[in-house]
Amino acid sequence: MNAADPLAERRVGTGIPGLDRMLGGGLVAGRPFLVTGGTGSGKSLLGLQFLLEGLRHHEEVLLVAVDEPPSEIMENVRSFGWDLSQVKTLDANPGTRAIKRNMAVQEIRTMTDLKSMRDLSQDTKRGSDAEEISIQSIQLKLRQQMADKPFRRVVVDSITSVRRFTIKASADPQAERTEIQSLLRFLSESGVTALITATPSDPGVLTPEEILTRGEILLTRKWVGDRSIRQLKIVRMRGAAHDPERRPFVITNQGIVLG
């Protein structure tokens, strides 16, 4: 908190001033956080703003894009006028082959490299040529990348998709939990401030990322007549005084703007 406190954690801006205020200064650096919300609630946008904020501070940032191929993300944010060219993207979209590589995006292909990594892994479960994305492969890839350029901010969009695409992992809940635990631990140990997006789990189901992330931001959208009302709530935030109430926000050409 105050500079005099040796234990005070460093805070990282989210790129959304209103949210930073709610968080009491921003996210605590070096920890993983969860952003949950339904489709179209603004999770990805929040993640991108978080990364762009990092770019403004000349940090190395990485987007692990599972939901959407990088090219589409580029298209989507065009209206905001954002420059994503410096955002490294781990194109983890399973249908990646069919997508034309957009040179504006520095893609980190997972496939080729991962294959070699897999060979090294102690228990290779996948076929050699299947272009699968898995929690394990993401971790291995990140680890490789971290060696030369340590990222400060990482967004995984979304963990729900990773889980969905990783059939083998979902077949074994224990293994999946362990993999997610390992990934989050890896991010923590790497000093990365990470945002993991997820669609809300079924009520009553507790996902490992819910347990392991240090905070959770919930985005909701409801319709009143023909108007959509978007709200943001900090569900939990370990070790940080925060605004626990639901706050409305809008998406403008500046991205997410919190009142």
Binding site: M117, L120, S121, Q122, Q136, Q139, E179, S182, R185, E189
Partner: peptide, 10 residues
């Protein structure tokens, strides 16, 4: 008692 990172290696 937090498990280490999985190395996926032997």
């Amino acid at each position: 008692a937090i498990p280490d990172i999985m190395r996926y290696e032997r």
